[in-house]
Design a binder for these strands. Sequence first.
DNA 1: CGACAGTACATGCACGCGCATCTAATGTCT
DNA 2: AGACATTAGATGCGCGTGCATGTACTGTCG
Lengths: 138, 138
Amino acid sequence: MNLHLMPVHAKLVAVSDVAEQALVQEWRELLARYSAVFSTLECRLQERHGIGANEFEALERLATCDFKCRSADLTEAVHLSQSATSRLVARLEKEGLVERALCEMDRRGIFVTITDAGRERYLAAKQTHREVLNETLR
Amino acid sequence: MNLHLMPVHAKLVAVSDVAEQALVQEWRELLARYSAVFSTLECRLQERHGIGANEFEALERLATCDFKCRSADLTEAVHLSQSATSRLVARLEKEGLVERALCEMDRRGIFVTITDAGRERYLAAKQTHREVLNETLR
DNA sequence: CGACAGTACATGCACGCGCATCTAATGTCT
DNA sequence: AGACATTAGATGCGCGTGCATGTACTGTCG
């Protein structure tokens, strides 16, 4: 495409077309990168520690951000819907990795706290997590 | 953390710790970015054109990479499992957007080709797709 | 106080996904 | 040619997800 030989309106189309292609390219790379990292994480965390990638993210949030985690905070951290987060917490609770506690100030809400077993599982899984990131993020 | 006051082995730990944090940060951003773009795409493509984001990616592949698309090629393009791709093609076929054709050279394989209706749907959805990318990718 | 909008989380439901497996066709080795 | 491993794609199954809705609680306004 030779811009010098084109009329103005064609140049504009060409330029925006180039910009569009760059945008699409960026999205493709983002998608490929994400897919590679996430599926590897999912797979290796599951086989070594029996938790999924989302479960890990939730545990990490709970292990680091001490003591003020309501269910809604988790929703934001894990990039899932409210209902998915609710079930995620239910799974973690059934595994004994977190506990649900009533929030006294607002009895609609619940506090989610990590248990000792949860912290232990998190610290073990953290090794694997970092290892996978090292391998797959360039 | 003051590196000058630390013994050598501690410095090494500290340095690798910084690198680790950068890696984790990068993953968090990738995840957040991906989630935002993908869910917006999913939502708007669905409501305006009745197809999901993965369906769109498949259509785009079929519309641009002319005529040599086996099912396996799609699998790679869409970042899905083989079985998911198979069902994806089945859905698109049911909607009349693609056609499955037997591959004569290797009768195990199938060629997937986009129909006129499929190309039309793709071109319409493409507008929305680019629009969303423009909004959500910075 | 009583009614009613709003919020936090749980749950029924339909659906898309990955894994394991199945089927049919191909390629290989003797 | 006959037996066996391999490959392409389809399918049964269990599970995690989002959407819509339900339930319990809070806050506000008359």
